[in-house]
Simulated assay, not measured.
Amino acid sequence: MNKIKIIMMTVVLGMLGFVNNVGAEEVGYSVNTVPSALQQNKKLSFFDLKAKPQQTFDLKVKIENKSTEVSTFKVAATNAMTSNNGTITYGPTTRKLDQSMKVPFTSIAKVKHPKVTVPANTVKTVSMQVTMPKFEFDGMILGGFYVEKLTTEDKKTSGYSNQYAYAKGVVIKETDTVVQPDLEMPVVGIKTDNNMVNVAGTLRNASMTNIANLDMTASITKRNSDKVIVSKKVTGYSVAPTTNFDALFQYDKQKLPAGKYTFHVHANQTTGKQYKWNLQKDFVITADEVKPKESRGLAVVGQRNVLLYVLLGVVAALLVIIIFLLWFFLFYKRRKAKKDENQG
């Protein structure tokens, strides 16, 4: 069965991400924050906190099971990440953290009960403990209080089932110092995923603050040329602190044959204080790295087959030699025995 997971995020609309609301009746349960003593803006439905170094505190949410059956929920702390389509995500992920993320939320938050059972038509409070790092920092740590209903139900008619989850945003600051966002492009190169070849410019927000409403134009030129080969423009991107995402161009052999190129990015933040970035990085496309995975696989298989055939040939030759030597030895032995018999 294929599952579609829909995460309902409660975060700052337009500043920290995107709010996706689905009725609790449709989902069968709801998740609401319990106000924290560290909450700065009490009107917000997510955690907007100001803490101190080494401070320890609990964050709590209430899970209301609106169904008529006992339900089990997965509870976890998650790190805010940035997707390649410019949204901040708060769900569990296997993505590698960016090297600029010195204090992931998951490193300071610990869920007390990773699995929680809630009886039908009942509300249960669950919590996670947060222990702030020893040093003081400017900017923010951004993460999520993630709750997902565990289910094995199938939608047999379509083969799909919607799996809803809630992620309550957690913003933690220690100072009021304004941090300037820092957009970098450390890597450009070919990335292959599911046999789809893309030219990827990896963009990193290396600062401990978010970038809101980022408008961006990306383009590729031949190295030392101003003529644009391919370009794309996106608007309204949100970028989480100390995370990265890829600006992607689907590879086109006709437009981008093997050679030397430059990846250009012109970006500006259009909300709040205006920030602009003009980034560029040289890169090389080689004929080998843009081959489809199947071709590479066939090449490897072909090489393995050649080695296998050579090995089988050597083994066969050795067997022939051994059989010949054995036959020669037996023939010689019989001939000698017959000769000795005649002489006797």
Rank of each mutant, 00 (worst) to 15 (best):
T209I: 03
M8S: 06
T89M: 14
M9I: 10
D246T: 02
F135E: 14
T270G: 02
E184V: 08
V199A: 07
P119E: 06
L330R: 03
A258F: 12
P257Y: 03
E174L: 09
N84E: 08
A120I: 05
A165W: 08
A51Y: 01
T262S: 13
Y29I: 12
T217L: 06
L330G: 00
D138G: 09
T217K: 15
F137T: 13
L279I: 08
K227P: 05
I285S: 03
A337L: 06
K66F: 00
T89W: 01
F283T: 03
L214D: 01
Q99N: 11
K227A: 11
T125N: 02
T235Y: 07
K173G: 05
L330T: 09
S30M: 03
T151E: 15
P92S: 08
V314Q: 01
T221P: 11
E136F: 04
T125E: 14
G143E: 02
G297R: 07
V12H: 02
T93S: 15
I190S: 03
T192R: 05
P241I: 06
E174A: 02
T82L: 13
V234E: 14
E174K: 08
T177S: 04
I141E: 04
L214E: 00
N244S: 15
E26I: 13
G144Q: 07
G159H: 12
L142H: 04
R204N: 08
D154P: 00
K110N: 13
K156I: 00
G236H: 05
I322E: 01
S295E: 14
L318M: 11
I4E: 12
